[in-house]
Structure formats: structure tokens, C-alpha cells
């Protein structure tokens, strides 16, 4: 693994769109070449080196490239955009669209992330030690194709609209979530280890949701079908099993409708 370190030395006046902070783009480049990569600040194109001190050359391939951003990225968007391999560590907070459209590799954020983390993700791993804002693993605005694969783990809390239009992959929120989980989802798994306020599984066609805390307000489109024991993220527990969203269309397999599942841990 070749390590490239980016050290922020100047706070952008606007937010920076750093589509190029990705092992795929860095691969095969020297630190000087990396510093010359384009980033966008508003409507102008600037250089990565205008805001970051770049140290170390990248590996030959994305797989062999490790990026460490040592400093706060609260105003840096699109870190790890579309990456397919390698790794990125952010030693602080990151702004919107971290790991968006990601296909492989790993991203670890030691602080918090803003909204749209892992948007339309297809593979790889995102680990956030702090909290996430809204739209974790959701679909792009208007799109009906959300997260398709990979894993997002938020160690803290997450906001609203988690896994909207999700088709596959796993999202784990280790603390609480606000509202709208797996809205319109047609696959994938969302695990909330704390409480959720409500609107869980609205218009959900297929997929699984686990809530290990409480759902404050259940949606009327979910029906209790029994109790079940399930293994979730390394632990086994008893859950109340609901199916839904009964107001949505569902595929039929061998004449039987396939519903989405909501498992709420039994008290």
C-alpha cells in the first residue's frame, strides 16, 4: 500500500467539490500530479493543491493506494466519489456525498458525516465513527435506484431518509435514527440499533429492516405476523415480525406475495 496524505491548510470560502479525492484518480500519480488535480469551488475550477498539502505518491493501482486526509473536511464534498478500490481515512468530519456511487474499497471517517453518505452505493465499506446527517445510503434525487450493495456503518446517530429506494447492501446505525427508513426500498437491509421515531418502511416493496430499540409510531401499512428469532450483526435476539407496506405493489413468487419485513426487538 502506498500512502498519500492530504493535509488541509486553507478553508475554502465556498464548499469544495472534490470528486477527485479517490484512489481511482490518484493511482499512478505522484504527489505533485495529485496536487494539480481539479476541484470545483462554486463555478470555478481550482487545484487540489490550493487547499491541501499533498505528501506521498499513490500506488500503481487503486487497490495499492491508501489516502489519509488528516484534518477537518467539513467543507469538502464528494470524497471517495465512485471509488472502486483502495482506502480513504478522514481524520475529522466530512461534508456531503462521502462515498457516493462507490463500488469498492473502504472509507473510514473518524468524525461525523453530513448528508448523502453512501448515496447510490454499489459496493465497498463505509465506516463513520460519529453521526450521520440525512439520506444515508439513499438514491439520488428523483432516481428510483438507490444503494445496491456494500455496507455503511454509522457508529452514532443518523437523521432522516435512510436507505430510500434501497435495492441491496446493508446499512447499520448503531444509535438512534429519526424518520423515514427504507422508503420505497426493493431490497437490502437496514439495522437501527437504537430507537426510530417513525415512518419506517413507507411504500416499501421488499427488503428487511431491524429495529433493536423502539419504533415510536408504527405505520398503518405494516401488519404483525408473529415472533421470530433472528441473528443481527453478530447477536441473536427475539423480534416481533411485521410485513408491509400493505399499500404497495408486491412481487409474487409461486403465487405468494413477497412483502418487506420489519423486525422490532421484543421488549
Amino acid at each position: 500500500m502506498a500512502l498519500v496524505t492530504l493535509k488541509p491548510y486553507k478553508t475554502p470560502e465556498l464548499y469544495l467539490e472534490c470528486y477527485n479525492i479517490s484512489p481511482d484518480v490518484f493511482a499512478g500519480k505522484t504527489s505533485a500530479e495529485i496536487a494539480e488535480l481539479d476541484v470545483r469551488e462554486g463555478k470555478t475550477t481550482v487545484k487540489l493543491g490550493d487547499f491541501f498539502e499533498v505528501k506521498g505518491n499513490a500506488g500503481k493501482t487503486p487497490e495499492e493506494t491508501e489516502i489519509r486526509v488528516s484534518g477537518d473536511c467539513s467543507r469538502i464534498k464528494y470524497i471517495g466519489n465512485k471509488m472502486t478500490a483502495g482506502s480513504i481515512t478522514v481524520d475529522g468530519n466530512a461534508d456531503m456525498y462521502l462515498g457516493g456511487w462507490m463500488k469498492g474499497g473502504k472509507i473510514h471517517v473518524l468524525g461525523n458525516v453530513h448528508s448523502f453518505c453512501g448515496i447510490a452505493m454499489e459496493g465497498g465499506e463505509i465506516l463513520v465513527d460519529g453521526n450521520a446527517e440525512n439520506y444515508v445510503g439513499c438514491a439520488y434525487r428523483g432516481d428510483w435506484r438507490g444503494m445496491r450493495g456494500g455496507t455503511i456503518r454509522i457508529r452514532g446517530n443518523a437523521g432522516n431518509d435512510i436507505g430510500t429506494f434501497m435495492l441491496g447492501g446493508t446499512i447499520i446505525v448503531e444509535k438512534n435514527a429519526f424518520i423515514h427508513v427504507s422508503t420505497h426500498a426493493e431490497g437490502g437491509t437496514v439495522i437501527i440499533k437504537g430507537d426510530v421515531q417513525g415512518r419506517v418502511g413507507g411504500q416499501m416493496v421488499k427488503g428487511d429492516i431491524y429495529v433493536l430499540g423502539a419504533v415510536q409510531h408504527m405505520l398503518p401499512g405494516f401488519k404483525k405476523v408473529g415472533m421470530t428469532e433472528r441473528e443481527v450483526d453478530g447477536m441473536t435476539a427475539k423480534f416481533t415480525h411485521y410485513i408491509g407496506d400493505l399499500g404497495e405493489r408486491h412481487l409474487k413468487v409461486k403465487g405468494k406475495e413477497v412483502y418487506a419485513n420489519l423486525y422490532v426487538m421484543a421488549a
Binding site: 470545483r40 463555478k43 475550477t45 439520488y140 428523483g142 432516481d143
Partner: peptide
Amino acid sequence: LMRPEDKLFKSPYA
């Protein structure tokens, strides 16, 4: 209006 996704990654800079 109903398809913001039609613009995604398909809108070159001026």
C-alpha cells in the same frame, strides 16, 4: 422537473 436524475453526471460545466 420530475427527473433531476436525468441531469446527474450529464451536465457539463459551462
